[in-house]
Design a protein around this nucleic acid. Structure first.
Lengths: 159, 159
DNA sequence: GATATTAGTGGGTGCGCACCCACTATAGGG
DNA sequence: CCCTATAGTGGGTGCGCACCCACTAATATC
């Protein structure tokens, strides 16, 4: 408790992160996640987009046209926010909005060819971020990490 | 394009996340990280704290007293923001600020006994979050995940 | 001793995200 | 027909985070 080693400490102590944090998976997950999110968001921002735009495009690509309300449910987004995302994608010609003739309250959102092309570009971006971020890992480790993340992700919803 | 299967789609299609996103480690990392961060932040918030408070406590616990400026460097925080974090921790009696007699511009920040106790509590919180979040993984998988995250984390700084 | 430099502080800004409310249009039930 | 519920929209709010600037106090330089 008294400082027997007081002198040589201050010099370079500088860079290392606190081990008691690095020992916590929670913390590492939070940090690496933040890095992933940040880098991806940055690339999206270059095209005036945010993560939700990509998520919406992906949902449409994977599951086909959605009523806007269903998109909200699927992605757990506030309807109001979803409206803004869709609006922007529509302005860019990446999705098409049509009134559902069966229930004219509903707006059916569908991916356009341009939208799909955009999604492909964004996916490529995400893969580049991945290469960057997972550079310290070899292919097998990346696969392992991915598998583990899928498991964790699967458990997230059911709290 | 025509809806041969139109009827059974709308019904439940609801919940699943877009596979083309789940296929991206970047995305999973971002999501799980967000979950980790969110849950941890929520627990910290109950005590009026944020992640930086915990990081500062941990840094002090691991490396001993710091000049405020060195804390900033270590944790990559803006000095101005650090001042606020320290101020709050000091008000709570979790750190002690003393002027460095050698250079009276510097403020040396040291952990108090209460601070260490607080850190212990926060760490326990983090571990609880971890148990919650990593519930789908067994012990071996958790260890693997942790090791992979450490690797990834190690590569983050050097862009 | 005047001047530049550094440590800490207070205040303010902009962004992203999540959330909420009010409003319109359509649909359905009595 | 009236009344309630639902889909989408526009606008606004609060929070956290990161960043930046102006200011004071204490050094260091000449």
């Amino acid at each position: 408790m008294d400082e027997l080693d007081g002198d040589d400490r201050g010099a370079d102590a500088g860079r290392a992160a606190p081990p008691s944090l690095v020992g916590l998976s929670t913390y590492l997950l939070s940090l690496t996640g933040k890095a992933a999110r940040g880098r991806l968001a940055e690339r999206l921002a270059r095209q005036g987009l945010r993560l939700w735009h990509m998520a919406v495009l992906a949902a449409l690509a994977d599951f086909g046209p959605h009523a806007q309300r269903d998109l909200c449910a699927r992605l757990s987004v506030d309807p109001s926010d979803m409206a803004k995302v869709i609006e922007q994608l529509a302005r860019g010609g990446h999705v098409e909005r049509t009134r559902d003739p069966a229930d004219r309250r509903r707006v059916v959102v569908a991916l356009t060819a341009e939208g799909r092309a955009l999604l492909d570009r964004l996916t490529a971006d995400a893969e580049r971020v991945q290469d960057e971020l997972l550079a310290p890992l070899d292919a097998r480790e990346r696969a392992e990490l991915h598998a583990l993340l899928v498991k964790v992700y699967g458990g997230i919803g059911d709290s």
